[in-house]
């Protein structure tokens, strides 16, 4: 299973990188979502995916009766999913505001903070 996951993770990263290299901010956002999924699956697979029983202890036992899936990456990913969603929402709103403000979705034309024809700073004392 890990080999198949490695392939899927590689694909997710490749597509995410390709989308992030776009100049259109919406495509970059789509890429970010894919990148988030790729990273989550990467962590998951790094914790091994051989056992498929949920990491839940039966009512009448102190430890799981059989080998369960690794709970640690699950705990890490669970919070990561929620955080990446809230960041995605933030970036989406930011992109939306930038579009309203600058009238473009092309990152090459967003030169407000770093203008293209920036002059030398004053050379006096």
């Amino acid at each position: 299973m890990e080999a198949a996951l490695a392939f899927v993770v590689g694909m997710l990263f490749a597509v995410a990188i390709y989308l992030l290299l776009s100049e259109h901010i919406i495509r970059m956002l789509l890429g970010l979502v894919l990148l988030g999924n790729g990273v989550n699956l990467l962590i998951f697979a790094a914790g091994r995916a051989s056992a498929v029983a949920p990491p839940i202890i039966p009512v009448d036992a102190d430890v799981p009766s059989a080998v369960t899936a690794n709970p640690l990456p699950q705990a890490l990913i669970l919070t990561a999913i929620v955080i990446s969603f809230s960041f995605f929402a933030f970036l989406l709103v930011l992109a939306y505001r930038v579009y309203q403000d600058l009238g473009t979705d092309d990152t090459d034309r967003m030169r407000l903070a770093e203008p293209e024809d920036d002059d030398l700073p004053p050379l006096g004392y």
């Binding site: 890990e2 490695a6 694909m11 790094a46």
Partner: peptide
């Protein structure tokens, strides 16, 4: 993508 995939494969 291939680098990350191979890295993960190696790791597992």
């Amino acid at each position: 993508g291939a680098g990350i995939g191979l890295f993960l494969l190696r790791l597992t």
